[in-house]
């Protein structure tokens, strides 16, 4: 099944017949089965599904952390499936960026330095200034010299978002970004992500929380490795403040 959520601009993410199989002692597990997907630029896409449905596998393959067994993936005009190992590293530096459920900040770097890392790795000049600006954008201008262990979970995730934004890469991939956070903090984070689409970034959020899908431009539903639907939420996207869980 080929689903085209929208007609119009060239898709920034395009998957064609992507299959991912894992060989296990118990046999072959098909994590993703002939998935086709097109995502337009500056959209907030929420990938929804229960545990084991293949949503993280999908995200990892878009982010070139994993490679498909079959099919092709194109992101920002680059055919990921044709890239060499070293080109994949370059792709991750220049095209995509990650926000993790467990934040994955560097413990020996301050908030400012964690964000600076994102800027430096993508080759930005004036990385320090950019990092300060990014932290101010996520309302952590007063916490720049704090180490991760001195920050709350929400603050750590905001630092992680600032780090991703500092790369300047067009595609943000967020895996359960609110999974470790309470409701209020989770809403804060989602608003931040939504705001990035206004800046032209494409944000793909993986979650099992159906409520989050209400704020998406496109909701992709997965079940047993199959994309079962890909469409805007009923009634269109709502503001993050309207979410409840």
């Amino acid at each position: 099944m080929i689903l085209h959520p929208t007609e119009g601009p060239t898709p920034i993410i395009e998957l064609r017949g992507v299959t991912k199989r894992f060989e296990t002692p118990a046999g072959t597990v098909v994590a993703l089965d002939r998935a086709d997907l097109s995502v337009e630029p500056a959209q907030l896409v929420v990938v929804l599904g229960p545990s084991g449905s293949g949503k993280t596998t999908l995200l990892n393959m878009i982010g070139a952390l994993d490679t498909p067994t079959e099919g092709s993936i194109e992101v920002a005009g680059k055919r990921v499936t044709d890239l060499s190992r070293s080109q994949l590293f370059g792709f991750r530096r220049q095209t995509v960026t990650f926000i993790f459920q467990a934040f994955n900040l560097f413990p020996e770097l301050t908030a400012l330095e964690n964000v600076r890392f994102g800027a430096e790795i993508s080759g930005h000049r004036s990385a320090a200034e950019l990092a300060v600006r990014m932290l101010e954008d996520v309302e952590l201008g007063d916490r720049v010299q704090h180490f991760p262990h001195e920050l709350s979970g929400g603050e750590q995730q905001r630092v992680a978002i600032a780090r991703s934004l500092a790369t300047g890469n067009p595609v943000l991939l967020a895996d359960e970004p609110t999974g470790e956070l309470d409701f209020r903090t989770g809403i804060q984070i989602l608003r931040l992500l939504r705001d990035r689409t206004n800046d032209g970034k494409t944000v793909v959020v993986v979650t099992h929380n159906r409520e989050i899908s209400r704020m998406a431009d496109v909701v992709v539903e997965l079940s047993d490795g199959h994309i079962v639907s890909s469409a805007p939420p009923p009634g269109g996207p709502v503001d993050a403040t309207e979410l409840r869980w």
């Binding site: 991750r92 993790f100 413990p107 790795i121």
Partner: peptide, 10 residues
């Protein structure tokens, strides 16, 4: 930490 670095393209 190493995995994060590599995820960021290091």
């Amino acid at each position: 930490e190493h995995a994060t670095m590599m995820a960021f393209g290091v």
